[in-house]
Design a protein around this nucleic acid. Structure first.
Lengths: 255, 255
DNA sequence: TAGTGGTCTAGACCACTTT
DNA sequence: AAGTGGTCTAGACCACTAT
């Protein structure tokens, strides 16, 4: 129990065998180093004396936690590079994150509907613009984002932002919107088959979803956004206070 | 694809059968209402024509996403009440969250060690105090927290805070520490067997882990904290901006 | 005691990548 | 063609809860 990165808490009680397998594979990852191929699942099963389903339960957890990179048809590898950091602060969003690359894939008008009307404080029959983009860097897709803005508020909003340009930039610069504040809610979800195909993951993998409602300087909501981040490749970062510091980019151990 | 809560994105492509099962069970949850017992897994398997392992893959995702509450030996139920909200803001932490209840279970001195010394900007041979508590409300444990503070900084810190009293309160009021700021990093992890027993969950369930480094008004780090939140019962909330608003406590749909 | 969810096995077939 | 990871099956035994 000496390792502070593990919280200082010892593991005890009955250890399920998939958890034993997980620890074995994690030790292997640390020994082999980044990018190195792991033994195949069937071989690891033989070595550990467990069924493949059992081994995969542990393996999948390590994928989620960013230690293993499984590629169908190719093999499993010790995951490379530290996870990308994504700042949750809105005010300096574009400055800090590793997701500045945006590809807009959807721009369409539609009726708001009950739930969205409520979130945006508009009428059910009012329209909204639905924008969708995939975000990432270095050609890797790390997030899928859906935004809804009230048509009434931005009547001349008729085409998607330029590639790599954020919706906030567009609203601020082109439509003189003054940012007031936002609420964000973070949850664990599992990606749908469609999202999985956009992200290049599997629907069995959990991701971090952030729901955001933003309002302008007068307190009127101007957007509702849902961002799905890949849990295995991203760490969400949050800064409180103003002292000048760099963000650490550490890798934390399994517990 | 009309439902904005689902992000407006349609599902297409090949749907795995565990995902079909998941959608079936989710529809069942909405139809039955909170607290109602679901059919047993074996019965659902018969109805859907899938193996139990396949059904459980979908069922487990719904547990993680807060829709289903599985109790060993008893059955599975539509999860009650909305998820608890936990504010990530440090400055008004005690005001907003649903985790004000704290039970301190660990208080001990130990050498810092390499990794922790680096995080706290102290020497490897310096000592730290390790505090651990379980947090929650209404008798339900929702988080496990481990904190490390440098002994040198608080030499008269010799006993744990009173029950339900936060470490920040203790440091601010008893030791006149002035809070400067903090970094927080959020990731998805799987709880260990020991943590599972403290939280009352299973080690197969993912949780949200927040690593926090805090510093005082002079910029000196005074704590490193690791908090593990139950992913199935908690939503992390983050507020940007100062306009007075209540936090919405919504429940978002599966995608 | 019977039924439930939690874990595990030993196979199978598929899509995919590599050779 | 061979090997890999992804999905799925039809069982089994366990710990636990309700009765």
């Amino acid at each position: 129990m000496a390792d502070p990165a593990r919280g200082g808490v010892p593991d005890d009680g009955d250890i399920p065998s998939y958890y034993r397998a997980k620890r074995h594979i994690l030790a292997l990852c640390k020994k082999l180093g980044e990018g190195v191929a792991l033994p195949s699942e069937r071989l690891l099963c033989d070595q550990l004396g467990v069924a493949r389903a059992t081994l995969r339960q542990g393996m999948l957890q390590l994928v989620i936690e960013g230690w293993v990179d499984s590629r169908q048809g190719s093999g499993s590898f010790v995951a490379k590079r530290p996870k990308v950091s994504q700042c949750l602060c809105l005010t300096n969003e574009s400055a800090q994150d590793g997701l500045s690359g945006r590809t807009w894939i959807t721009f369409e008008r539609r009726p708001a509907g009950c739930e969205l009307a409520h979130k945006l404080c508009i009428d059910q029959n009012d329209h909204v613009i639905h924008l969708e983009c995939v975000r990432g860097s270095d050609g890797e897709v790390l997030a899928v984002e859906s935004a809804f803005v009230p048509t009434k508020r931005f009547p001349r909003f008729s085409r998607p932002p330029a590639q790599n340009r954020s919706l906030h930039d567009e609203l601020k610069n082109r439509f003189k919107m003054l940012f007031g504040g936002a609420d964000q809610r973070m949850d664990i979800v599992h990606v749908s088959p469609r999202e999985a195909s956009l992200l290049g993951t599997l629907p069995a993998l959990p991701g971090l979803v952030v729901h955001r409602t933003s309002w302008d300087a007068r307190g009127e909501p101007f957007e509702w956004v849902r961002t799905l981040y890949r849990g295995d490749r991203l760490t969400l970062v949050n800064r409180v206070g103003s002292i000048e510091r760099g963000f650490a980019n550490e890798r934390h151990d399994l517990r």
